[in-house]
């Protein structure tokens, strides 16, 4: 079973990212929307038009949904202009040429219409694939991991560019990806899938900061999960753990043993002040620098903290000088999230 009870509502003009590890069903979802696959049950509706419903199946070529596949899939025997114009058969020739020229300009490839796809770089190929999908002015554009084959630098630049372009045109778009950074940074609305189900949906910030479980939290970004205990004190909820007594922003499950989720950006390491060697606040503990990896702009510290079997990893600015063996103060800023104590959780990586 590739999809199970998926319910997804995309507002017009929105950019939706569907994020999930491979095998989570995100590609199947996309193929069902596009009409490449026929779901056994369920409905697909586009601008009030039923595409799939019991007894009804509109075929892909009648849907008006554009797609930008992985690696572009440009037709290799057609020129760039012919590729972009492929979906414009109904338009008169002159209009078609004007539209192709306009799209080439839009994706920054003016003048390259006569090239063959194999004469373009990977990034240029993806731009052409986008222009080809946009040419017939589809009601919806599907982006199937379109940046995954590009190298890291090009990827970041191009995805911002594509996002801007789609926003300017007011296109409705669904992006499918397994890249957390990509999904979170581009989306108006983020959907996380796992095992054929939607496990979280909402504004990216909301989903990132209030994950429903520890696995999701780890999947969305670097995170440290340690054992602790939650207790309630009047209105405030706190968690006791090896890093001190921390305020809890969101807690799932009841009081007692729990898992405490701490993001690396919440941890601050400082040298102890000269006059007192003790820690000043509840959310601070003392630690010893075990080792250090220096990267220039920043450095990774591994700090031994009493009560933790493994050192915690902290990113600090490169110019701060720490040395192995140094005593340091480890503080946790902002509130943390807690989850019920691990029964047998499996990682999502």
């Amino acid at each position: 079973m590739a999809l199970d009870g998926v319910d997804l509502d995309v507002p017009g003009g929105a950019f939706v990212s569907v994020l999930g590890p491979s095998g989570s069903g995100k590609t199947t979802l996309l193929r069902c929307i596009a009409g490449f696959e026929r779901p056994d049950a369920g409905t697909v509706t586009l601008r009030g038009r039923e595409l799939v419903s019991p007894g009804r199946f509109v075929r892909a070529f009648e849907r008006g949904i554009g797609i930008v596949p992985q690696e572009g899939a440009l037709f290799p025997h057609l020129t760039v202009a012919q590729n972009i114009g492929f979906g414009l058969v109904e338009a008169p020739r002159r209009d078609r040429r004007a539209r192709v020229g306009q799209l080439l300009e839009l994706v920054g490839l003016a003048g390259l219409g006569g090239r063959r796809p194999d004469q373009l770089s990977g990034g240029q190929q993806q731009r052409v694939a986008l222009a080809r999908a946009l040419a017939p002015e589809p009601a919806l554009v599907l982006l199937d991991e379109p940046f995954s084959a590009l190298d890291a630098q090009l990827r970041v630049g191009l995805r911002e560019e594509v996002r801007e372009l789609l926003r300017t045109l007011g296109s409705t778009a669904v992006l499918v990806t397994h890249d957390q950074a990509e999904a979170i940074s581009l989306a108006d609305h983020l959907v996380v899938m796992r095992g054929g189900r939607v496990v979280a949906a909402g504004e990216p910030r909301e989903v990132y900061e209030h994950p429903v479980d520890a696995d999701l939290a780890r999947f969305l970004g670097e995170a440290m999960v340690i054992d602790g205990a939650v207790f309630r004190e009047r209105e405030d909820v706190h968690a006791d753990c090896a890093l001190g007594r921390l305020p809890v922003g969101h807690f799932h499950g009841g009081e007692g043993n729990c898992q405490v989720l701490i993001r690396p950006e919440q941890i601050v390491v400082t040298a102890p002040s000269r006059d007192d060697s003790a820690v000043a606040r509840d959310s601070q503990v003392m630690g010893v620098v075990a080792s250090l990896s220096y990267f220039g702009h920043d450095a990774l510290l591994r700090v031994e903290v009493p009560g933790l079997s493994r050192p915690i990893v902290v990113r600090v600015a490169g110019r701060k000088a720490f040395h192995p063996g140094d005593q340091v103060v480890v503080s946790v800023t902002r509130s943390v999230a807690t989850f019920p104590a691990a029964t047998n959780s499996s990682s999502m990586h």
């Binding site: 596009a34 075929r59 070529f61 949904i65 899939a73 037709f75 492929f86 999908a133 589809p138």
Partner: peptide
């Protein structure tokens, strides 16, 4: 992927075959 893209651009299977698959 070419079949899929051609369909998404409104090409019926016959046109996709004649314009894409056959020449390739």
């Amino acid at each position: 992927a070419y079949d899929d893209v051609a369909a998404s651009l409104g090409a019926r299977p016959l046109r996709a075959f004649l314009r894409i698959n056959l020449p390739l």
